[in-house]
Design a binder for these strands. Structure first.
Lengths: 208, 208
DNA sequence: CCCTTTTCCGTACGTCGTACCAGAAATAGT
DNA sequence: ACTATTTCTGGTACGACGTACGGAAAAGGG
């Protein structure tokens, strides 16, 4: 068996190289030619391992998803989901391109599926339906992505032009203040978010 | 005054054309050549009105931001912020490219600044600091973007391959169910989100 | 040794953003 | 009216992108 010319590389090598580039220089730097030269191959050789660039990004998302800290489920859905959210946050902080890569992705990889499965299992004690639990997971993930994006862009002056104090008094005052310390806030915000989401979802399904 | 050859178009015309294309065919369809032919100009003529494509997208975001329903502030921060969130949601549903365009944007346009100013004013009765209020607005906006993205992609089969029931039991069960009705949920979720965020922020600033 | 199978990768096409610049069209000064 | 000056116009072109195509190269099976 194993006829034909043997591959010089593996799909995993390609994905790893792509992740390394994205970690160092952002998603935009992940071009087919760049990844190819990084592993010492011709540009077109990549297509042996990966059908398109878009699919490569799917694989990258799934790859780093597999490196997330595994959460032991305790049966306490609040604690479990909070731990999952924390794990997600750590993942996104380690791979800053992840939040921007997440939207519009197909949920195709095994690690992503395992993540969803885990979230669904964590929410099982709530008694909510599967579809509702799925949406809650999407909302929590979206929240974490939002939060991390906000964390990563902290300190960067977002406004180029100076704002007119007369026209935008609150804005002017807010910019005059120093940046707040965000570090200890995430757990409390996430905990409350999760609790509130589930509570609302329960009320809603009970009343309809 | 007004020396030199007069412009054949205006920046507003360019931005309007770009928004129309994005509404109809998505952000990716907004190319410089495409926008140019749409207003009957040569591709390079656009650069008289707009420095780069990226800046054009900034302008698009600000432009549609100006079309959002204006919210009358009542002094009740819960109701006011909920109304703002609802207005944002309507905006994103009308311009589905908006959620994906929002991250990594410079907050440069007057409409965007006015939106922030309005949010800050709405949160003023909470007594929170300007920087904290700013972050709350970013989180609420992020939540709305997440929610709308989820709404827009509802019904689309996200998973290409069939999932193995043995390996992913919860996932299999969730897919077997029908999609839930989401329509009446937004206001309750957003209301609770806003209330909870402010409560947490207050607790945090009080204890530190 | 050749034939089949598979991978490798140089070449090339279409598209993108946009730099450059010669021509066109307007006003201001004479 | 003529010229100088300023401004907008858009053709051409460059480099980078994703990737289709197809021959060369490398392995095993007969």
């Amino acid at each position: 068996m194993a006829r034909g010319r043997p591959p010089s590389h593996t799909r995993d090598q390609v994905v790893d190289a792509a992740v390394a580039i994205a970690d160092a220089e952002g998603l935009a730097a992940v071009t087919m030619r760049r990844v190819a030269t990084e592993i010492g191959a011709g540009a077109m050789s990549l297509y042996t391992y990966v059908p398109t660039r878009d699919f490569l990004i799917d694989l990258m998302v799934d790859r780093v998803g597999g490196t997330a800290a595994q959460v032991e489920l305790t049966g306490d859905w609040r604690a479990d989901l909070l731990a999952i959210a924390g794990s997600q946050r750590a993942l996104m902080l380690a791979h800053p391109w992840l939040p921007s890569a997440l939207p519009n992705r197909r949920l195709t990889g095994r690690n992503t599926l395992a993540y969803l499965e885990r979230g669904l299992a964590a929410l099982a004690p709530t008694g909510l339906g599967g579809a509702t639990r799925m949406e809650l997971i999407a909302l929590v993930t979206g929240f974490v992505a939002s939060f991390v994006t906000s964390e990563l862009s902290a300190g960067v002056p977002q406004v180029a032009e100076p704002v007119s104090p007369a026209e935008f008094p609150h804005l002017t005052a807010a910019f005059a203040e120093g940046g707040p310390v965000r570090e200890p806030t995430f757990e409390r915000l996430a905990d409350w978010m999760i609790t509130g989401l589930v509570t609302q979802a329960r009320d809603h399904s009970a009343s309809s």
